[in-house]
Amino acid sequence: MTEQPLLIAETLGKNYGARIGCRDVALEVYPGEVLAVVGESGSGKSTLLGLLSTELEPSAGRVSYRLRDGSLRDLATLGAAERRLLMRTDWGFVRQNPADGLRMAVSAGGNVGERLMAVGRRHYGDIRTEALDWLGRVEIAADRIDDDPRSFSGGMRQRLQIARNLVTRPRLVFMDEPTGGLDVSVQARLLDLVRSLVSEMGLAVIIVTHDLAVARLLSHRMVVMRQGRVIETGLTDQVLDDPREPYTQLLVSSVLAA
């Protein structure tokens, strides 16, 4: 287990005019670690994810990332080309709405193959073989490879999005409510899939969710956000079983037991 963090956020903040998106956030993510960011809507967790993934520009603080060569770089100092290369090779981003993360008019195989082609792979047969392998890993039948995601169910689309992101073997994946809007049984299947892929591939994941059960199942550590600030952090089971902050206690006690 590497003891050097993969991603470090320091005094990270984002203002939307006078409104605070998030403020003074510090966190670290290590290789192979799943970090859950939980909180109600409006707590700033999606803003935080945007800042960490460089989709939003911070008003304060910085995010550093350890590149594959071992160097730790302030992401703000990366050029656009470097950053975009990072985003389509070393990072993944699984979005809540698959239509935002997939090319809906492109076949499943093309969706998975895009990242490979983006990094210069030019052998159709190899790309297709790899796409097929990944469709299998996310439990999409091989004969759907040439269908486009518009003909897929919500769960299938989300699994396709995962395959599309993981095909370049990223080291860090951002997930924004990946199970939101799915039926419970479909959720369970997706969570199980994510869980096993994460451990097989040693992925680091930063997952934003309002669903504490999802956080418990997937994450090692947890960050609780409220009003743009991190109010509690710790091991996931620690935060959920022995919450300290009044707000976290409220959050945990508000979960319906199945």
Binding site: L235, D237, Q238, D241, D242, R244
Partner: peptide
Amino acid sequence: LKMIYGNYR
């Protein structure tokens, strides 16, 4: 037990 396991703080 839970404290020893680190489950309770």
